[in-house]
Every structure is written in structure tokens, then in C-alpha cells.
């Protein structure tokens, strides 16, 4: 594997105009699934209706995934857990009785501890430190702002679509009506006016926290340790360090289960790390083609 390509765009190229790195800490443990973030985002950024919007059958999720018209997406996960056995220390007989009661009364939705747990999480563009979308963009439409966020310039994007499969999180997508690619801007316009992004402002539980990344990381560490101490065994911070495959993210998360349960990749990488082997292989193949062409004429007769 080749050395990662270091491009010091932020804060270097901004000089004195550089601002502290801003981001989101989304604490999913206190998300109540109200979707105020989705609505606030749509209102502020004037985003059209999500194409897949409607009844999906996936719990209360009606927008399915992030895309050109969904910049905040609230995931709803219903997990069936062994009834009360491990937490309450109850007997198998108790558990069986509880199961029977649940079946008889036809109770479908119940709270944590009663056999089903809800996971709700508001997903968003991660504003990666090493952003594959930005690196593959051939027009420079995707750029890094003075807040170290990643934004698409809609007056430059020509809809080549390269960033769509390049993103390890499947965040970006093309809007069919205008052919361009859209995603979360971390409310770049509001940040310039010292205002917090619309989703964070609308969040009633402070599940979406906005601020300087260094502060958010400290806050997240405290929260994680508290939850771990309280016995949330799968609680984890996702994308909260600099050591992962994307060099850390501007938007990171506190999750209560493994990332893939929320539709997030457990080990995302910026494929630019392999740029050396990618171009190397293309070069070797081009040389092989030259060799083949020469070999075809090797007998030297017409």
C-alpha cells in the first residue's frame, strides 16, 4: 500500500481566513426520532421532496437513505432482545410467561427492557478529513471551506456523478430534475453568519450538537464513558478520532450498536490512500499494451 497523499488544504490554504473546524456530534442515545432535523434541513435549504418518501414498511423511516434530496436521514431500528433475562436476572419461566402475555395482548411496540429496543439515529454527511468525493471531483465543484467542511458548488457541478460511488458512506446522489449532485453543506450560509445549522437548532433533545470539533470530541468522550459505566455495553463513538480510514470526520456519532446496524460502514476508507497502486497498475497495463502492439509487428512483414 502506498503512503496516503497529504494535501494540506485546510487550514493551510486559507491562511488568516481559516476558521476553527466546525462539526456535528450526533448523540443517537437521546434521539427520539421526531425528524425535526429532516424538516428543518429541507425548509432552510429549500430541498424538494425526497423521491422515495412515503410508507416504506421500515418502521417509521419514510426517507430510506441520504441522497440529493435528503441531507438528514433519521433511521429507525427495532431490535428484539431476549426478554428481561439478562438485565433483570429473571428466570426462564418468567420470560416465557412474559412472552405469552405479550402474544395474548397483541402488544407490538414496547419499550426497552420489555423485549424490544428502539434505536433512532439522525445520519448526515460526515465532512471527512480525507474526503473521497472531493478528491475524485474533476471540476473542483466540491471544495473544502474555511470551516474544514466539504461543500458542492452548484454553479460548477456538471453532474459527472463520480463522487456518488466514491463516497464510502453513500451520502451524495444526483438530483434527477437538474442532473447535479447535492448533499449537506453543514449550512455553510448560516455558518458564515455565526448561526448554527438548521438541523442542530431544531433538534429538541440536543441529540444533534453543533460546535468546534475539539469541544465536541471532549463532550462525546464524557458522554460515552457515562453510558459505558451505566452498562450500555455496545455504546461506541463512530468517526470520533483521526486514526480511521478517512482521517476522522467533522460529523461523528455516538451509536448504541455496531455501525452496520445503522447502515454505516464499520471500516470506511478514502480510496485515495491506494492512489499509488491504482495509477501504478494503469501504467503497467498501458506498458503491456505497448508491448502487445510491438509484438504484433515483431515479424516485421506487412
Amino acid at each position: 500500500m502506498s503512503e496516503p497523499l497529504e494535501i494540506n488544504v485546510w487550514p493551510g490554504s486559507y491562511g488568516a481566513a481559516a476558521k476553527p473546524r466546525m462539526g456535528f456530534f450526533t448523540d443517537t442515545s437521546i434521539c427520539i426520532g421526531c425528524k425535526a432535523c429532516e424538516v428543518a434541513c429541507k425548509e432552510w435549504n429549500q430541498i424538494p421532496a425526497s423521491p422515495q418518501q412515503g410508507f416504506t414498511g421500515h418502521s417509521y423511516d419514510n426517507t430510506v437513505d441520504l441522497g440529493a434530496d435528503t441531507w438528514r436521514h433519521v433511521a429507525f431500528i427495532e431490535q428484539r432482545k431476549p426478554v428481561g433475562l439478562d438485565s433483570a436476572g429473571g428466570s426462564l419461566v418468567d420470560a416465557a410467561a412474559l412472552h405469552q402475555l405479550i402474544d395474548e395482548t397483541g402488544l407490538g411496540t414496547y419499550q426497552e427492557g420489555d423485549g424490544l429496543r428502539w434505536l433512532m439515529a439522525s445520519d448526515v454527511c460526515k465532512h471527512c478529513t480525507n474526503a473521497a468525493c472531493l478528491e475524485v471531483c474533476p471540476t473542483g465543484a466540491l471544495f473544502r471551506t474555511e470551516f474544514d467542511t466539504v461543500v458542492v458548488q452548484e454553479d460548477v457541478c456538471n453532474g459527472c456523478g463520480y463522487c456518488v460511488p466514491a463516497c464510502p458512506f453513500g451520502v451524495l446522489d444526483q438530483r434527477e430534475e437538474d442532473g447535479r449532485v447535492w448533499k449537506c453543506t453543514l449550512c455553510y450560509d448560516r455558518l458564515k453568519d455565526d448561526k448554527e445549522p438548521a438541523c442542530a437548532q431544531a433538534c429538541p433533545t440536543n441529540s444533534i450538537q453543533f460546535g468546534e470539533l475539539t469541544d465536541l470530541r471532549e463532550r462525546a468522550d464524557r458522554r460515552l464513558n457515562k453510558l459505558t459505566e451505566a452498562g450500555a455495553e455496545h455504546a461506541q463513538l463512530y468517526l470520533a478520532g483521526d486514526e480511521d480510514g478517512i482521517g476522522g470526520a467533522g460529523a461523528f456519532f455516538l451509536l448504541l450498536d455496531e455501525p452496520e446496524v445503522y447502515g454505516l460502514p464499520p471500516d470506511p476508507v478514502d480510496t485515495t490512500d491506494d492512489l499509488g497502486s491504482i495509477w501504478g497498475a494503469a501504467g503497467i497495463a498501458a506498458a503491456a499494451l505497448a508491448g502487445g502492439l510491438l509484438a504484433a509487428f515483431a515479424r516485421g512483414r506487412p
Binding site: 464513558n225 459505558t228 468517526l239 486514526e243 480511521d244 480510514g245 471500516d267
Partner: peptide
């Protein structure tokens, strides 16, 4: 791969 998740250290909370 390093993965992107980090677990907590319970005693650190206090």
C-alpha cells in the same frame, strides 16, 4: 483495518 469505532472506558467517567 482500524475500524471507525471506539468503545468507552467506564472508570474515566467520574
Amino acid at each position: 483495518g482500524r475500524g471507525a469505532s471506539r468503545r468507552g472506558t467506564p472508570d474515566a467517567a467520574s
